[in-house]
Every structure is written in structure tokens, then in C-alpha cells.
């Protein structure tokens, strides 16, 4: 497939200008930083708490901002122009994800520095973070295509926030409610499990499950996103 860097870069620059001038959305990126700051000052130093801030960055920055960016294009009726332009579907989707990806990485680095989290194996953790960002951004794209307005997107993101960021905490109640075992399969829980196994001596076999599951989530959400995009394309056009 022939991707035009020039087009994707144009979309990135345009998104940056729109985003930085929209304070209502762009100020959200401060929330995970503030939370990270609180936790670091409270002096709690467990993996669970570190990942509270990290998972919150993912859902509030990656998913929410991506969702707003896409929903705004729809609300303002500009997505149609993009779809009718010579840009292809991958160019549009990648171009629209680039800004969120960059911001996510920046905020993630910021909150990790603030909480003082030091992973057992930095390289493996970075790869896991990158994969997770892709997953959360894709979910954001999917929700953005479903939401009709920016207003709606902040509501629609809430379930994702609770499920993926708060969800891992529910694993404390697994013994009482066996239904909650499902939480084990969430990408955010897998990320925490990965981090915990990295702290001790780990075998390569331990890495297979988290990476495999996160990748599986990415593939499922990507397929859904392309289906919804194509459907929107037929409806709107």
C-alpha cells in the first residue's frame, strides 16, 4: 500500500492547530499528570498505583482525545471532505491517529517520571506501552466514529474509562464474585500482570500471554473500526 507521508503530515499539522486552540479538550491531558503528582507525593509505591496513573493516561488521553478529534470532524461535517479527498482510508486513519499517539507518549513519559515508576525491564515495557497506545487510540477512533458530537464523545468514553482504567482494581473481589474473572482478559490487567512478572525473574513464556492478548484486542478493535468506517462512508456520502 502506498501511504503518502505528505498527506498524513498535513492531517497531523491541521489536527495540532485545531487541538491546541480547543482548550476544552486539550486541557484534559493535564488530568493524568495531576493524578500522577498526587500519587507520587502520597509515597505509595506499588505496581497497582503506578498503573492507575498509566491506565488513566491511556483512557483519558489516547481514547478520549482520539474520540473527540474524530467526533469533531463528524460534527463539523469535515469528515466527508476528508473521505471525498484523494486521501485513502489508511492515510486518513493513520494521519488522524498521529497527533494522539505523540501526545499519549509524551504524557505517559511525564506521568511515569512523576510517579517514579521504574520497570523491571525497560525495553519490554516500552514495547508493551506502544502496543497499548495503539489499542486505546483504535478504540478512540471506533468510539469517535460512533459518537455524533464532541459532547456525546465525552459520555461514550466513560464506559471505556471505567472498564479499562478502574477495571483492574476489581480483581480484588474475584474470590467473592467469580464473574469478575473476565477482568483478567482486559488489556489493562494484562499490562499490570506483565509489569508484575517483570519485577521478578521472568521467563520468555511469561511474556506470551500479555503480548498475545493485547495484540488480539488490537486486531479485534481495528477490524471493528474499519467496518464502522466503511459503514459511515456509505451513510454519510
Amino acid at each position: 500500500m502506498n501511504l503518502s507521508m505528505k498527506r498524513m503530515q498535513a492531517i497531523l499539522v491541521k489536527d495540532y492547530k485545531e487541538f491546541s486552540r480547543n482548550l476544552a479538550v486539550s486541557s484534559t491531558i493535564l488530568v493524568p499528570l495531576v493524578i500522577a503528582l498526587f500519587y507520587s507525593r502520597m509515597g505509595i509505591d506499588t505496581i497497582q498505583v503506578h498503573f492507575m496513573a498509566i491506565n488513566m493516561t491511556f483512557s483519558l488521553v489516547a481514547t478520549y482525545i482520539q474520540c473527540c478529534l474524530i467526533a469533531e470532524e463528524k460534527e463539523k461535517n469535515t469528515l466527508r471532505n476528508l473521505m471525498l479527498s484523494p486521501a485513502t482510508i489508511p492515510e486518513i486513519l493513520i494521519g488522524k491517529s498521529m497527533l494522539t499517539f505523540i501526545i499519549t507518549i509524551l504524557i505517559l513519559t511525564g506521568s511515569i517520571l512523576l510517579t517514579g515508576y521504574n520497570p523491571g525491564n525497560t525495553l519490554i515495557m516500552i514495547i508493551a506501552f506502544l502496543l497499548s497506545s495503539i489499542f486505546y487510540i483504535t478504540i478512540g477512533t471506533l468510539l469517535g466514529l460512533i459518537a455524533k458530537t464532541v459532547m456525546e464523545s465525552s459520555v461514550i468514553v466513560m464506559p471505556v474509562f471505567f472498564l479499562f482504567s478502574i477495571g483492574p482494581f476489581a480483581s480484588a473481589f474475584v474470590e467473592k464474585y467469580p464473574v469478575l474473572k473476565v477482568i483478567e482478559w482486559l488489556p489493562s490487567t494484562q499490562l499490570i500482570n506483565l509489569a508484575e512478572s517483570l519485577e521478578n525473574n521472568f521467563k520468555v513464556g511469561d511474556l506470551v500471554q500479555p503480548f498475545g492478548l493485547i495484540s488480539l484486542w488490537i486486531i479485534i478493535v481495528m477490524i471493528l473500526t474499519v467496518i464502522v468506517y466503511n459503514k459511515r462512508m456509505k451513510d454519510d456520502i
Binding site: K14, K17, E18, R21, N22, E73, K76, N77, L79, N81
Partner: peptide
Amino acid sequence: QEGHYERMTIFE
């Protein structure tokens, strides 16, 4: 009726 990126300038 066509959409515009409202926060950008005409030139941008």
C-alpha cells in the same frame, strides 16, 4: 453546506 475547521485561519 460544507464543514470547516473553525479554529484554523483561512491560509492554514
